[in-house]
Amino acid sequence: MRLRRALMKILVPIKRVVDPYAKVRSLPDGSGMDTTGLKFEINPFDEIAVEEAVRLKEKDPSIEIVAVSIGGAECEEQLRKGLAMGADRAILVETNDPLDSTVVAAELAALANELKPDMILMGKQATDDDNNQAGQMLAAKLNWPQATFAAKVERGDGIVRVTRETDTGDETLELPLPCLVTTDLRLNEPRYIALPGIIKARSKPLEKRPRMTSAAPKTRIVRMEAPAARQAGRKVGSVDELYVALKDRGAL
């Protein structure tokens, strides 16, 4: 008979992103994003992942939640928020190296091999690069099953059942642990954490450590520019006028 492990460990990767609700522009010289005066936040999809992990822990207090971020010292701010939401401890893989999804997946795979989590819960994409790659790449590296675009996560005995959104509706998958789940918008609404909560979480452990791999990025952004703007058309005064205009354009 196999002994069941008393503890379940969930790893939640967190990315620091520019304020997802701000209008972001490229710098005039095309070299990057103009973040002057803008706040930085937890990637909203990662925040949903933290929330989901915390909800699972509320049902089973033996769960340990480890939040991890890769990046500069400033990422500590987002990890502290994750701790305030209910993560037990945090790890900052501190680096100023250029990162792409392949580097992030390599670093997280190395960390997962050390920490041996039962589940990795992370956002489907970051709202800055909108790549939607790192989770799937990480699952591939670990050879774990994956469920992306999760709208519902239920834990069973040694498995999770995930209802995920698809192009045409939804589907429910059953995955044995360990597995990787990426979160979509409708999974939950993250709890609000007021500043005192973040300060209180300062007593929770946050470990800083260097990178574990020498993986180099396989892509590089060479230019950022404003997308071509759509030209405004004209107002029409009535349904008649609209109908005629569309007929003339051959659109009806």
Partner: peptide, 8 residues
């Protein structure tokens, strides 16, 4: 960034 930047 939600379509506000076109990256190469």
């Amino acid at each position: 960034v939600a379509g506000s930047i076109l990256a190469t």
